[in-house]
Amino acid sequence: MFLQQLINGVTLGSTYALIALGYTMVYGIILLINFAHGEIYMVGSFIALILVVSYKVNIVAAFFAAMLGCMILGVLMERIAYRPLRHKNSNRLSALISAIGVSIFLSNLVLMLRGPQTTRFPDVIEYQFYSIGPAQISNLQILIIVISAALMLGLQYIVMRTKVGKAMRATSMDMQTAYLMGINVNRIVAITFAIGSSLGAAAGVLVGIYFNAVSPLMGTMAGMKAFTAAVLGGIGSIPGAMLGGVLLGVAEVLGVAYLSSSYRDAIAFGILIIILLIKPSGILGQRALKKV
């Protein structure tokens, strides 16, 4: 049973990791806790749902359409709600409240258009099961784990190896200096939002397929868990988001399995606090040096 629970945990954790990647990326560059990321994830799964159900679009095409749609949404959101704040002499919390405003707006927009009920996501992929000793794993579980790992590696490549990535890192270190060095900071931030939001959409579609359910309210809790995962791994760190997501998922599942299912979220957050006390910047996070 332990092995089966471990598989359950890793799968759940991978879904958290998928959402956490977008979170951590935006945070890493502009230090904004983008609360609306959970909503982007929700919108992404709705785009795919509508395409698949109403327009009979192939799931792979719907997957990329959702990513594209959310990419546009993310850039728009940055343009309207965050960029004006960046140019004013504002504190970071104003941007946070603005993000909360966007999040409330988006979830209620979808609620109005679609109604509050949970909608079934059609079974677009035939289930197949493989045995590993006493446990079993499905093709969908493998798909989710593989895709989240692949996206993490791809993202890591972009940030660490490409020119855009270099500009991103420079922007995250010091926005003003980066600007003086000729980096178009606005463009870099917009690209960051584009990538982060399309990752959120990818997560939304995969989670929609995996759990068969999509609802306008799914963003909030998922966003919270993903945020937790990102912090656990060390916010701003891409491998950290993956690690944090998987750890959180495994901790939750093992908590249900061996402690008590009625304390599920308390166990998850309790572990978070304990880890932060031991490692105050998350597992893979770097302690920022403070200039005096």
Binding site: Y27, L31, I33, M224, F227, T228, V231, I235, S262, Y263, R264, D265, A266, F269, G270, L272, I273, L276, L277, P280, S281, G282
Partner: peptide, 28 residues
């Protein structure tokens, strides 16, 4: 006592966690 040595957003997330823990404990 334990959490205030965390700084910035790490403190924020710890307080958020505390909030959720409190809610779950009240439910039990």
């Amino acid at each position: 006592f334990p959490t205030l040595r965390l700084s910035g957003d790490y403190l924020a997330i710890a307080t958020m966690g505390f909030g959720e823990i409190t809610r779950v404990i009240l439910l039990n």
